[in-house]
Design a protein around this nucleic acid. Structure first.
Length: 465
RNA sequence: GCCCCUAUCGUCUAAUGGUUAGGACACCAGCUUCUCAGGCUGGAAAUACCGGUUCGAAUCCGGUUAGGGGCGCCA
């Protein structure tokens, strides 16, 4: 049997790290088993669903490279199917119309709570006769509830084994607001069945809705899929990652300069681990190694510093040619050649955590800068000495032919000039060329600036002293 | 309150009855070095607790505790 899995987000919020991880594990399992990965948009909640969120989810998935084989399938376009099933359930007397008002229900719930009982639907409308139902349907508001047996059922979760659930805890639950307004528990089940889903891989928050869905499978005489409940991803506050707790969207990470490889690698390690001690792993390698059995079952707290580490790593492996299109040069007007820009990116990326760090770290190439004379002084060296050294450097640079003005050559000269007192030469030159105390090596800066501009900047420094 | 799930360094995890309990991030120190970053070397750091099973338990069982999730006409 071919494996068919789905990622089924509801477009009521942006895709965040937790969602991306669920999508990734579904994707990996599908690819590892030569199966089919389906994207389903669960937009049955008309009030909360927004097209903007759907677009964000689709965008983010594409950006991450988690491509689906079928879909996106929108539940809002399959209402007729759910309606058919709802009616079938009612016809078979497995579901019924309920006319109890929300206020009434809330009141009863509070009563039960104060008595220390489990809040559950009491079954007021369970046995209304057909005539009454027809009459009340005309003018009263209603929902549709599934009849629940008074028994304990056990089901098997792939990772956790047997899980017990007592239906006496739940009471008859609502499966649809109206015939054309199904709820998650119904629409999700129907789709999983009709789309031939073999494995439901979803977050742990759904663990207790599984028995309810299993009941629907039973009533309809359908074969249920295998359920795999992933441990939750928790934020720093140890609660479930969600929009409310300020969980960042994948898109925000993207805007902050994170790479998809880094996010994927990071998120994969939240509850899963490849064989051996290695942790740097590409999507292709993950597919080769992915085993459902290797999934963890304990919740995981996500930590930004490891994401940063992965991002730094993947940034380093990228060539400047690949990076150039990912950078925003709009505020960095320049006249540099393509080759020089590549060199600038090369220098910037070594010190960057995200894409957004690259250009600001080398902004002196693009903007006029200033600094104090004191900054030019290396430790206890005298002003005179520094000034003299810069003059020396200038003199040597002047001798070099424009086309030989390369980092290696420049470094050679600086090494020769400075001998054992590197700081007395390298330091003031770096400050002269960058205006900063921390920067890439001065010989690299000089090469990018070119002979003329470099000498220009040295003169400016000498004037300060 | 009730139900469910989970429990190895601060964090992510490895070890599926026998290891000096391993790795990664973060942290600390040293080296490299003109600065920063990086790299290299080293360090500190964990089996929640109590019982039981067993020659032997992080691992199996029970309890306690802690954390999380659910108890929607949300998903």
């Amino acid at each position: 049997m071919v494996v068919r899995v789905r990622f089924a987000p509801s477009p009521t919020g942006y895709l965040h790290l937790g969602g991306a991880r669920t999508a990734l594990f579904n994707y990996l399992f599908a690819k590892a088993e030569n199966g089919v990965f389906i994207l389903r948009i669960e937009d049955t909640d008309k009030e909360r669903s927004r097209r903007e969120f759907e677009e964000d989810i689709i965008d983010s998935l594409n950006w991450l490279g988690l491509f689906w084989d079928e879909g996106p399938i929108r539940q809002s376009e399959r209402i007729d199917l759910y309606e058919k099933i709802i009616k079938e359930l009612i016809d078979k007397d497995l579901a019924y119309y309920c006319f109890c008002s929300k206020e009434e229900l809330e009141l009863r719930k509070q009563e039960q709570l104060t008595r220390g009982e489990v809040p559950r639907y009491s079954g007021t409308c369970r046995n209304l006769d057909k005539q009454t139902v027809l009459k009340r349907k005309e003018k009263e508001n209603y929902v549709i509830r599934l009849k629940v047996p008074e028994k304990i059922i056990t089901f098997k979760d792939f990772l956790r084994g047997e899980i017990k659930f007592d239906f006496r805890q739940s009471g008859d639950f609502v499966i649809a607001k109206k015939e054309k307004e199904p709820l998650y528990v119904l629409a999700n089940t129907v789709d999983d069945h009709y789309q031939g889903i073999t494995h439901v891989i979803r977050g742990e928050e759904f663990i207790l809705t599984t028995p309810k869905q299993l009941l629907i499978y039973q009533y309809l005489d359908w074969q249920p899929p295998i359920f795999v409940h992933l441990p939750l991803v928790l934020g720093q506050d140890r609660s479930k990652l969600s929009k409310r707790h300020g969980a960042k969207s994948i898109n925000e990470y993207r805007q902050e300069g994170y790479l998809p490889e880094a996010i994927l690698n990071f998120v994969a390690l939240l509850g899963w681990h490849p064989a051996g001690d290695r942790e740097i792993i590409s999507l292709e390698e993950m597919i080769k190694e992915f085993k459902l059995e290797k999934l963890n079952k304990s919740p995981t707290i996500f930590n930004i510093s490891k994401l940063n580490y992965f991002n730094r790593h993947y940034l380093k492996t990228k060539k400047p040619e690949e990076l150039i299109d990912l950078l925003d040069f709009s505020t960095y007007i320049n006249n540099y050649s393509y080759e020089k820009i590549l060199k600038i990116i090369e220098l910037g990326k070594e010190r960057a955590t995200t894409l957004n760090d690259i250009l600001p770290s080398v902004e002196f190439f693009f903007k006029d800068f200033d600094y104090s004379a004191e900054m030019l002084i290396w430790k206890n060296t005298s002003r005179e000495k520094i000034k003299n050294n810069l003059e020396e450097i200038k003199k040597e640079f002047a001798k070099i032919k424009e086309e030989d003005f390369r980092a290696e050559k420049i470094k050679e000269i600086l090494d020769r000039l400075s001998g054992n007192n590197k700081g007395e030469y390298f330091w003031p030159l770096r400050v002269a060329l960058s205006g900063k105390e921390a920067s890439p090596p001065p010989f690299d800066l000089a090469e990018v600036f070119g002979k003329e501009k470099t000498i220009d900047l040295i003169n400016k420094a000498i004037e300060k002293l």
